[in-house]
């Protein structure tokens, strides 16, 4: 099977029922995508499929045939971080970092979809991404700083 991963075509010879999460981490060695709960509750495994945020622990890799998958590794352009990534650093929005890749992808969609966001919009948009460290305030501030 083939799909586009962070702008490049990849082909894989694995059973289609394998979780996209495992294909990314174990077969393609992109370990930026994290596994938290493995049940769709925490969002640590968030990736984008055709620009929409999904939990890669709930996707069968066969379902991304012909589609475009973006992981956290695909956000930065070479060495240049996105404004959102930069804002996460500046606001101290990451502590242990487990939630950060998924958080960045979910936030990326939010910032792309609409320029004007309230703190409540951000909270709602990131409701599928749990963080046990930061208490969310710094994450929300970081996202809001990219929308003004």
């Amino acid at each position: 099977m083939r799909f586009t991963l962070n702008g490049r075509t990849v082909s894989l010879d694995v059973v289609g029922t394998r979780r996209l999460l495992d294909a990314l981490r174990e077969d393609l060695h992109l370990t930026g995508t994290k596994e938290g709960c493995g049940e769709g509750e925490c969002g640590a495994c968030s990736v984008l499929i055709d620009g929409e945020v999904v939990d890669s622990c709930l996707i069968a890799v066969g379902q991304v045939e012909g589609r475009e998958v973006t992981t956290v590794e695909g956000l930065a352009d070479g060495g240049r971080l996105t404004a959102l990534q930069q804002a996460f650093i500046e606001h101290g929005a990451a502590q242990c970092g487990i939630c950060t890749p998924g958080m960045l992808l979910a936030a990326h969609v939010l910032v792309q979809q609409s320029r004007q966001l309230t703190a409540d919009d951000v909270r709602e948009g990131l409701a599928g991404n749990l963080c046990r460290c930061t208490g969310y305030t710094k994450i929300i501030d970081a996202v809001l700083s990219c929308t003004k």
Binding site: R19, G40, C57
Partner: peptide, 28 residues
């Protein structure tokens, strides 16, 4: 298999009874 938000966890944990032999991707 549609969106997989109910099925994938059970498929992965092999807790479906009977365990399916095939899944049919109807999502697309």
């Amino acid at each position: 298999l549609a969106g997989g938000t109910d099925l994938m966890v059970m498929l992965h944990a092999r807790t479906l009874r009977p365990q399916p032999r095939a899944v049919l991707d109807i999502w697309s």
